[in-house]
Simulated scan of single mutants.
Amino acid sequence: MKTVLTTGSNGLLGQKITEKVLAEGRVKLIATSKGANRYPATNGYEYAEMDILNPEQVKAVVEKYKPDSIIHTAAMTNVDTAEADKALCHQLNVDAVQTLLSLCEEKNIQLIHLSTDFVFDGANGPYKEQDAVNPLSYYGESKVLAEELLKNSTAKWVILRTILVYGITNDMSRSNIVLWAKGALEKGLPINVVNDQWRMPTLAEDLAEACLLAVEKNAEGIYHVSGKDYMSIADIVQKVADYWTLDKSIINEVSSVGLNQTAIRPMKTGFVLDKTIRDLGYNPHSFDEGLSVVDGQMVVRNK
Rank of each mutant, 00 (worst) to 15 (best):
A123D: 11
D171H: 07
K86S: 05
L273H: 06
K228C: 10
F287G: 06
G221S: 09
V62D: 06
W198S: 15
N218H: 13
L114E: 07
Y139R: 03
W244E: 06
A263V: 11
L273Y: 03
A84G: 01
V4L: 05
K217C: 01
F120D: 12
M298I: 08
L189S: 09
L101K: 01
R26A: 12
T276G: 05
N134S: 15
I233R: 10
V299S: 04
V144S: 11
W244V: 04
E83K: 04
S249T: 13
V79F: 06
G167K: 01
T245V: 08
L103K: 03
R26K: 14
T77Q: 14
G270V: 07
I168A: 05
L246G: 09
E19K: 11
E209P: 02
E106V: 00
E253L: 00
E106M: 01
L136D: 10
L114R: 03
M76C: 09
D131H: 11
V27Y: 01
K187N: 06
G221Y: 03
I277H: 06
H224N: 15
R161E: 12
Q197E: 15
N302Y: 00
K107A: 05
Q57H: 08
Y65F: 15
I30C: 08
N10Q: 13
Y65H: 15
I163A: 12
G8E: 13
Q297D: 03
S153E: 10
Q15R: 14
D85C: 11
G188H: 02
V194I: 09
E49P: 08
G296R: 04
N10T: 12
L136N: 06
V254A: 04
T262W: 00
Y127A: 12
L145H: 15
Q110R: 14
L145D: 15
N152E: 13
S255C: 02
S175Q: 09
R26M: 11
V119L: 14
M1H: 12
K248C: 05
G258K: 10
Q91Y: 14
E289C: 04
N176H: 06
L136V: 11
G188D: 02
I109V: 12
V58P: 02
Y230D: 07
V62P: 02
V272D: 15
D68Y: 11
D229E: 10
M172C: 00
L101Q: 02
G188N: 01
G25L: 04
D196S: 09
